[in-house]
């Protein structure tokens, strides 16, 4: 279901492999590109703010893009002003991003700040664009626990995708070599964060200890050997099946799992 008239921009970053740390295409950004390719086909614009010579960017070109715009910046620069200025002039109707970067701070704030700056609505966790008509888009939003919610949002809007979006297609070597990385000069603003914060290799988080606040040895023994129990449960005995089922249905409705 391509929406060929839709002007879609995908913002991408350079990721890092979770084990080796090698530069790669970022998982969620690749999903954003995949979604953009399904929506706009070859008219999709892809933008990166950073180093135009990064080899990892070619993995996005290998997904079937002819070119990729790179707003040239150093490593410690703030991507927000450059991207904001680019997008306000790009005439985009839909901007797709990943939820958070795989390197650097990775706070996931960029889509929110861009939406605030551009004054556009933001859809978090976009899973699918169902249809676009009359300046409105009907989209599916991914919720935790595999649920979906249907939203109607005015164009233009920003959307961040997470792991519920369609899996990115494989990157092909030939198109990756042939594609163009088009560098653009922008005003560089340094990020103030790194002057006051330190990045360090992740420490394993301390495992939470099971603290037993027992006064006597018998209580400690009981706590150490007790089986899992939910405390005082309600037990319905010697009831007709109808009454038992009614009690269960009441709980299901109260918990809101029966839709």
């Amino acid at each position: 279901m391509p929406h060929n008239e839709l002007n879609v921009v995908a913002l991408v970053s350079v990721g890092a492999h979770p084990t080796s740390g090698r530069a790669r295409r970022a998982e969620q950004d690749a999903r954003a590109v995949e979604l953009g390719l399904r929506l706009a086909g070859s008219k999709l614009q892809v933008v990166h703010a950073g180093d135009p010579h990064a080899e990892a960017l070619r993995a996005y070109l290998g997904m079937g893009l002819d070119e990729l715009a790179v707003l040239e910046q150093g490593a410690g620069a703030d991507a927000l002003p450059a991207l904001g200025a680019y997008l306000s002039g790009a005439g985009a109707q839909l901007v797709l991003t990943g939820s958070q970067a795989e390197t650097g701070e990775g706070s996931g704030m960029l889509p929110y700040l861009l939406a605030e700056r551009l004054g556009w609505p933001l859809v978090v966790g976009l899973a699918e664009v169902e249809r676009v008509e009359d300046g409105f888009a009907q989209v599916l939003q991914a919720l935790p626990r595999g649920q979906r919610r249907r939203l109607r949002v005015r164009l233009p809007f920003l959307a961040s995708v997470d792991n519920a979006a369609p899996v990115a297609r494989q990157s092909a070597f030939g198109p990756a070599r042939r594609g163009q990385l088009r560098a653009e000069d922008v005003v560089v603003v340094d990020d103030a964060l790194l002057s006051e914060a330190q990045l360090q290799p992740a420490r394993p988080r301390p495992k939470r200890l099971k603290v037993i606040k027992a006064k006597t040895g018998a209580e400690r023994m009981k706590a150490a050997t007790a089986k899992a129990s939910g405390g005082t449960g309600q037990v319905l005995k010697d009831l007709p099946p109808q009454a038992g089922a009614e009690a269960i249905l009441k709980l299901l409705v109260e918990e809101g799992v029966l839709r």
């Binding site: 129990s229 939910g230 449960g233 309600q234 319905l236 099946p241 038992g244 089922a245 009614e246 269960i248």
Partner: peptide, 24 residues
């Protein structure tokens, strides 16, 4: 399982499931 459960119904599972389907 009854000790762990918040609500337990003692009875034949087939009859209760049948009633539950109808009620749902």
């Amino acid at each position: 399982m009854i000790k762990r459960a918040d609500l337990s119904v003692i009875g034949d599972s087939s009859a209760i499931l049948q009633a539950l389907i109808e009620l749902a």
